[in-house]
Every structure is written in C-alpha cells, then in structure tokens.
Simulated assay, not measured.
Amino acid sequence: MTARVEHLVTSGTFALDGGVWDVDNNVWLVGDDREVVVIDAAHDAAAIEKAVGGRRLVAIVCTHAHNDHIGAAPALAAATGAPVLLHPAERELWDRTHPGTAPDGELVDGGTLSVAGVELTMLHTPGHSPGGVCLYAPELGTVFTGDTLFQGGPGATGRSFSDFPTIIDSIRDRLLTLPPGTVVRTGHGDPTTIGTEAPALADWIARGH
C-alpha cells in the first residue's frame, strides 16, 4: 500500500508569556492502512485517535513543545502505546505543559523515522523555539514545518525562547535548499510550496541579521 498524508484540524488555546489565544492546529498523519505517524498531537486526543483508527501508531512526533502542539500527546500515547518524540532542546517548554512527565524519545538532526515504506528525515530548525524540528519526506514531496515556515513567511519570534535571526538561518539553510515543488504542510493554516515562498523569503533573509 502507498503511504499518504492525512489532515485533521483541532482547536484549543495557545498560552505563553501570560497570554492565551484561541488557535486552530493542523494535525498531520503519514501512513497507510496498517500503520501511521502523527505529527503534532494538538488539543484533542480522542479526535486524533479516531483518525488513527485501528492502525498501529508508530510514533507521535512533536515539531516543538508549545502547548498547542503537544497538549494531547500524553493522552494519545496512553491510549495507543505509541512513543512521544521531541527534540531535547524543547524540554523546558514541555515541562511547562506536562510537568512531572517526559517524552519517550528524542528527535535528532538527520535522524529518520520509517512508516509505511517512506522515511521522514528530521531537520533541526530552531528559531520559533530552541528545538523546533521539520520533517522532510522526499518520497511524498512534502515537508512538515510546524511553526517554522508558513504561507507568507517565517513563524513568530516575538515570545520567549524564540529568535528571529535563528529562524531565518534555519529557513535559509534547511528549507530553501529543498526542491521548489516541495509541499510545505504547516502547523496552522494552508499548505504552500518551497518555490512559492522563496521569493518573499529573500526579503526576510535580508532583514534577518
């Protein structure tokens, strides 16, 4: 069976630095009829478990540890037995949402995760947060960027743990090097492509330092 990308939107709140905002999050599933990976278990564990169905959940991958991206991860892991994977530089943010718990494994730059015959390669892309990770699936022609890159520009860097020059470096060095036709599947909002975003990103890069 051929691997495919499935999409679910869940809603809740994002909280950081004393503020709370209503948000809609993209939850991405990569797999086939037998097994699947969840990218960003946001807000609603029951809805995500329903989308997984009876398939084996290989892993719950967290692109970063802002509460709106990891809120449902422990409950989904408990329901399915799947491990939660997170870059170690995100641990302080994780602890703010899930104190007294820990992810089950670490994401490392260049590491790979196999599901349904395709490989997801981890690209460490700090800036929005210290341990932000994008997942590149060349066989599917797509990259899952979390909150690093959106349609229209880089992710936000105006709050704690973020840094604008760092996110610009990440986008320039790790994402703009991907083929222009690569579909960018983001943490919020609509997909785009690397080629579509590249011209406007040149202006952001020029302002990055």
Rank of each mutant, 00 (worst) to 15 (best):
M1Q: 15
T2I: 04
A3R: 05
R4G: 08
V5A: 14
V9Q: 12
T10Y: 03
T10E: 04
S11I: 09
G18A: 13
G19N: 09
G19L: 15
V20P: 03
V20W: 03
W21M: 13
N25L: 00
V27Q: 00
W28M: 08
L29Q: 05
L29V: 07
G31D: 02
D32S: 12
E35V: 02
V37D: 01
I39H: 06
H43G: 08
D44A: 14
I48G: 06
I48F: 15
I48Q: 04
K50N: 07
A51L: 08
G54W: 09
G54S: 10
R55N: 07
L57S: 04
I60L: 13
I60N: 00
H64P: 00
H66L: 11
I70A: 06
G71M: 11
A72C: 06
A75L: 11
L76E: 01
L76R: 02
A77M: 04
A78N: 06
A79C: 02
A79F: 10
T80K: 11
T80R: 14
T80C: 09
P88M: 10
A89H: 10
A89D: 13
A89S: 13
R91G: 01
D95K: 05
R96M: 15
R96T: 11
T97P: 06
H98K: 05
G100D: 05
A102G: 07
P103Y: 07
D104A: 12
D104Y: 12
D104H: 12
G105L: 06
E106P: 03
E106Q: 08
L107D: 00
L107Q: 07
V115M: 01
A116R: 08
A116D: 07
A116E: 01
A116I: 00
V118L: 11
E119H: 14
L120K: 15
H128L: 01
G132A: 14
L135R: 05
L135C: 08
P138V: 15
P138K: 12
E139Q: 13
E139K: 15
E139V: 13
V143K: 09
F144T: 00
G146E: 05
L149S: 07
F150Y: 15
Q151W: 12
G152E: 09
G153H: 09
G153R: 06
P154G: 03
A156H: 07
T157P: 05
R159N: 08
R159S: 08
S162I: 05
S162G: 10
S162Y: 04
D163H: 04
P165D: 14
T166M: 03
I168N: 02
I168F: 06
I171K: 01
L175N: 02
P179C: 09
T182S: 07
V184R: 07
R185I: 05
G187I: 00
H188S: 13
D190V: 09
D190W: 04
D190G: 02
T192V: 02
T192R: 02
T193C: 14
A198V: 06
P199T: 11
P199S: 00
A200F: 15
D203Q: 14
D203P: 03
W204S: 10
I205R: 08
A206E: 15
R207Q: 14
R207S: 10
G208H: 08
G208I: 09
H209C: 05
H209P: 12
H209G: 09
